[in-house]
Design a protein around this nucleic acid. Structure first.
Lengths: 249, 249
DNA sequence: TATTTGCATATGTACATACATACTAACATA
DNA sequence: TATGTTAGTATGTATGTACATATGCAAATA
């Protein structure tokens, strides 16, 4: 298997190399904790310099897909909990990754006037109507989350989009809008009548409630999202590592 | 202000440079979003190569303490929400950072035999007793969290430690044990009689429930922690940014 | 005046090179 | 046999160099 790096492409070589590495280690043959070829040989095979290759490797090391050990080699990490990126999977992607088919129970689009806090967050005229998307989603057995999303008018959503597709996919491919930063607040609340009905549970059941403020790469507000999760069928997982001291080569 | 990098020190130059940069941007003079000197000049002043300096800068860029812009310069980030590190503040530190005085309502230390899951997590003999620490903490108005912690016997805790001090501070300075990785699961539950009494709330109130698995730098299990938070007085906040595409130079 | 052009600046990418250091395994020695 | 030495290998650190590209400003132009 020889790789092709295009030296004339406008895409930086280390980005191309990174992509190739990702493909390489995704291959079942490599899963088991195998070692990569050593940096010098691999650089030669890819026809790039060792420094450039190391840039690519460093990215994957940071993501904990690879582990380097001086004097030994670079190994593919066996078990991948895939920490941070997890936070950024949308609901459908998240479920797909676990092999759970998603079912849409309700999907309602409307144009509403924002309340004061929301108009303030978006930095828009409180009289300007914004798109509100409500969805109840879950598995075959029943619903387990109720989402309410409000979108900034800047995006240009019409309301006619196919919201069964992954949300962030729609924003990226159709509206060239990239969600980059998310601030979330998680708390617990009790289900009232309306929530209990939507989620097919009892009034007074414990729900996980998540507010999410989503920003684009320029830190401009994009989306305000509320999520009500049935606590017995969902846990929110976080994996965080301390700031490390080691660095690039 | 001239800096000193010690070329004879066993500490890598880029690590020394990183430390100097941290000191530099910590200086009030630099807070306001000022630009660093350009890489070439700065490298000259530090008497290191540009590549080495970039290694140091990259670390801080990754931590979002610095922002680089091609053709413009490298700027100190103004507002620092300090995303990731936040996850790593202990309760008392977290409260201190918000200027809220912490009050300890209960503190109970005991030696218990682990249940099967716990013995398995720690990888120890299920008959070996381990240290269990229970704490109810909150503000002046009342309690708002009930913690249960189990510690791995390897650490060497005796049970006589002053657990009013920040926990991770005790582990680090007195037991040379550094908590490095945490895996958390957050869900919502209803308060039963026992929990309601401890947290001075009603039976059936919504609580935020957090399980935390803590590991050291060698990924050895250190602590298993359960936290029950009164939902009306606490929200769990997460700030996460997407994986970036840029890399080292 | 408004717009374009071009230069200076700073970061981004890429390479070749050299030596340091951690680890492994094979070999030699007591 | 047990132990210490050594050679080989792979990553870690560090430098110097060159050119690419994005940005902002100032001068030239319509």
């Amino acid at each position: 298997m020889h790789f092709k790096i295009n030296h004339k492409s406008p895409i930086p070589l280390h980005v191309q190399a990174e992509k190739l590495l990702r493909q390489l280690i995704a291959d079942p043959q490599y899963q088991a904790g195998k070692f990569l070829p050593n940096e010098i040989d691999l650089a030669k095979r890819l026809a790039i310099s060792r420094a450039t290759l190391r840039q690519a490797i460093n990215k994957l090391v940071y993501e904990e897909l690879l582990v380097r050990k001086k004097g030994v080699g670079t190994k593919v990490v066996t078990k991948k909990f895939s920490s941070k990126s997890n936070n950024w999977l949308s609901f459908s992607q998240e479920m797909a990754a676990r092999g759970i088919p998603v079912r849409n129970f309700e999907l309602h689009v409307s144009w509403v006037v924002p309340n004061d806090g929301l108009a303030d967050f978006f930095g828009i005229d409180p009289n300007q109507k914004i798109l509100k998307l409500e969805r109840v989603r879950g598995q075959a057995e029943g619903p387990f989350v109720y989402f309410i999303s409000y979108f900034h008018p800047r995006i240009g959503l019409t309301g006619d989009e196919d919201f069964k597709r992954p949300l962030y996919d729609i924003l990226e491919s159709d509206f060239n809008t990239v969600a980059d930063l998310s601030k979330e607040e998680i708390s617990a609340i009790l289900a009232d009548k309306s929530l209990a009905e939507k989620l097919e549970t009892d009034v007074g059941a414990a729900l996980l409630f998540r507010k999410r403020y989503v920003f684009d790469q320029a830190d401009r507000p994009l989306e305000y999202n509320l999520g009500y999760y049935k606590a017995d069928s969902f846990v929110y997982t976080v994996e965080s590592r301390r700031q490390h001291s080691s660095a690039t080569g």
